[in-house]
Amino acid sequence: MFEISAHTRRKRRAELLARGIFLSMTLLMVLPLLLILGFLIWKALPILSLDFILDNPSKGMRAGGIWSPLLGSIYLVFISLVIATPIGVLAAVYLNEYARESWFTRVVNLAVVNLAGVPSIVHALFGLGAFVLFMHIGKSILAASMTLAIMTMPVIIASTKEALASVPISFREACWNVGATRWQTIRHVVLPNSISGILTGVILQVSRAAGETAPIMFTGAVFFKAIEEGNLFAYGLFDQCMTLSMHLFTISTQVPDVPDALPYGTAVVLLGMVLLVNAVAIVLRVYLRSRKKW
């Protein structure tokens, strides 16, 4: 009784095979990531030190550290998010909480989706034309940040809308039925319950802003610039700056005889910065999630 039949045996083999394939694909996905990380760190190990981070590049980029590109990247990421976050989040609140379905919202939503898909080099040209030339800002941190902001804004709008939409409609009903206005509903109920999702979406844009080279190449990044070492306010808004991504590109391809460890060290710091910020996002998310329960 209950003996295994030929058909069942075949089914079981197929089951094992399917599971094996899915598992190996998962491993195949994780493996390169670990390899890249390990390889980078191993190659960069001889050069990684506090001095590497706090020194300007020197000797025609063949020695020294990455202070000025690191600070430049931080400036660009920070300022671009300061510009993009309020606009993006508030626009998303309007679209999700106020706007009724109409031709206008359909056009806006379409624009958001399409803007998110525009290649970064196109953003670069737009930034050059609109901010650097037309608005006479000139190649500067401000122009580059604005270009990055334009690039990240659609994604912030999309992720914020998603976070807002995940707040149950019953919470809004509860508010409306005691006579709360839309703004009171948003302030007391919708925002407190979606803030973790909104913040995560915003913070994830740090990695995009930090990694892009094209949009800043025409709008504010320079080949080389020495700044006061260790001074966090060494750049002004209208200065040009170096950035990590561009620096990495330069020393890997444009400058001869760069010691091997230098580009790898730069890559590790860039990656470390992004991972650090993402880790903060995750911790924040876990913390805010633990405070809300429904």
Partner: peptide, 18 residues
């Protein structure tokens, strides 16, 4: 706003705020 103050509503699923 004044109308809804005077006419409140209770729903199928209890919806206390979190």
């Amino acid at each position: 706003i004044e109308l809804r103050k005077a006419v409140g509503m209770v729903f199928q699923r209890p919806n206390p705020l979190p």
